[in-house]
Design a protein around this nucleic acid. Sequence first.
RNA 1: GCCACCGUAGCUCAGUGGUAGAGCGGCUGAUUUGUAAUCAGCGGGUCGGGGGUUCGAAUCCCUCCGGUGGCUCCA
Length: 651
Amino acid sequence: MAERIQLQLENGVTSEFPRGITGKEVVEALFPEKAAAAVGVELNGVIYDLSRPLQESGRLRILTFEDEEGRQIFWHSAAHLMAEALEALYPGIKFAIGPPIEQGFYYDVELPEGVTLSAEDLPRIEDKMRELAARDVPFERLEVSWEDAVRYYREQCPNPYKLEILHELRGQPITFYRQGNFVDLCRGTHVPSTGMLRYPKLLSIAGAYWRGDSRNPMLTRIYGICFPEQEQLEEFLRLRQEADRRDHRKLGRELELFLLTPAVGPGLPIWLPNGTVVRRTLEAFLRREQLKRGYQEVITPHIGNLQLYKTSGHYPYYADSQFPPMRLDEHEEYLLKPMNCPHHHQIYAAKPRSYRELPLRLAEFGTVYRYEQSGELNGLVRVRGFTQDDAHIYCTPEQLKEEIKAVVDLTQYVFRIFGMPVDIRLSFRDENESKYGGDRALWERAQREIQEVADELGLEYTIGIGEAAFYGPKIDFIVRDALGRRWQLGTVQVDYVMPERFGLEYIGPDGQPHRPVIIHRAPFGSLERFIGILIEHYAGNFPFWLAPVQAVVLPITDAQHEAAYQLAERLQEAGYRVQTDVRSERLQRKIAEAEHRKIPFLLILGRKELQTGTIAVRQHGVGDLGSRSLEELLRWFAELNVPGAERSHAG
RNA sequence: GCCACCGUAGCUCAGUGGUAGAGCGGCUGAUUUGUAAUCAGCGGGUCGGGGGUUCGAAUCCCUCCGGUGGCUCCA
């Protein structure tokens, strides 16, 4: 074996080093400015601790907190630091798993008999973590035999969880990591020493089943995050605060958009007048867009014969997440509809279809009911009764790709209107046959066609294996909101299964019956969920075209009341949503209250305005704009009253 | 559904075994006001529901309901 290895570094230069040199030594020799920030290295795709000897030639990347992999190392180490703190504070605690996650880390633990943790205990654990980090002790990697590892967790430090993990690693060499007094079974990698983990923050505490299986015992999960610099921690906490400030449940109450009350039932939202404006405006926007694109709108009932869902195959798959059927007699049971598709299929099947009628695009704002588990309910984002912007496209196999393209185009258009960037995921099946219905060959075909469309459109996408619906693969649209949070919204699904199950046919040019293909699609997904997200995206500051109340007229004294009513009436006639505030309050108060309500425009009428025939305009988030004529205002309003208009305007 | 925590006026919250409170909102009146909250008065609560401990429970215990954070699930 050669005594020297060649390492190609990030700057493109290849240098020679003695075999067994550590990452730390390479960094110190060639990139001293990175030495303090480096958390590990990647060599030929394998991630190493900085202290590990490198044995082979190849490309070497130096990882810091700026790299995805570096952050994972950093947070994984922070999880160990938290574990050390927990062990110091709660002797006898048992550790299960403590991985890094997208934003931080958690550790699942079994607390000693009689001990419970609540959020109030977190600062104490954090203090301990800071104290331990200040000692700045190294993380050490220890290789032990499998037998020694098992002995350790059986005798010295009894821990059933670690033993269960070890049993899956039987016979393999095992690594432990130690920092200070804390030793943990761990594959690694870790930062060089605890001193890097100076700015931890523990975020929440939750229950979590061991291995995510509800048959297993419930462990206590503690979530946290950690940063190398204080400013990063502060920025993170600031963003979290901002997210709290935008919480749609809070804004929904303050702006009187919707109501959730146990009197009606958990997860069953009531749309208040303001929220109804937002929802109807969104519906009108999409309806108009769909009509332009050749959709026909339909309306179907909220319940349907249970047989319909047995035919579709949904019922056995999802019996647990449906409201129980209503039983009329032994032969007749009805279900609150959990989806619209079977109803739409009846429309297709109501008469013989010719290939000349296809594609048939049936759209419905269809309200559906699903019995979501109580712990899942969350404001408007997760509810038990919601309205899908649903449509089913029945087309020939030859038309499929063009139709998918048109649907992708519509979906992208829609999210552009709201200024939400979209990431696309192709959701394909995995090997678990029991999760899916239909013929394997048709699945392959649908997946191939979806991917071809994505490629032909030049989409950037990722592929999610195992994310498919039970009857077909999907294109999922994952949007990012104003805070950069990701939400899975729109979906396009290709379905060869339902046409079979419902025996759908069309007569082709050859005079013979053929099976159509169905595309299920919903750009918003659920109006409730989408509006919940939209409230947070806009922080309640709806753009003009969506705002429940677009302008409030504020007369300064009684002398302007008549003029105020006239102005409001004029604007209402022009189609705007306008109110008038004639209370005997000072202007300041009227403005303050209207600003709290996030009204886009305040139209102020005083003595001056009546004399000059103008309107003093104040815009939400901008302030006093000075005076305008009514004509100017109407022109501006007309420009703004268009979906997406605000994106080309200030404010 | 499971675990932890929480539930006091419309909203935000104080009150930890001894007569239920504040601010905002609401109502009534005064005030006629120029770009983020005028003044005064008046209402308003089975302290989430039920049960228990106690001379006495918003406060302690049990149970149910609802909410929050997660876990599991997601057509």
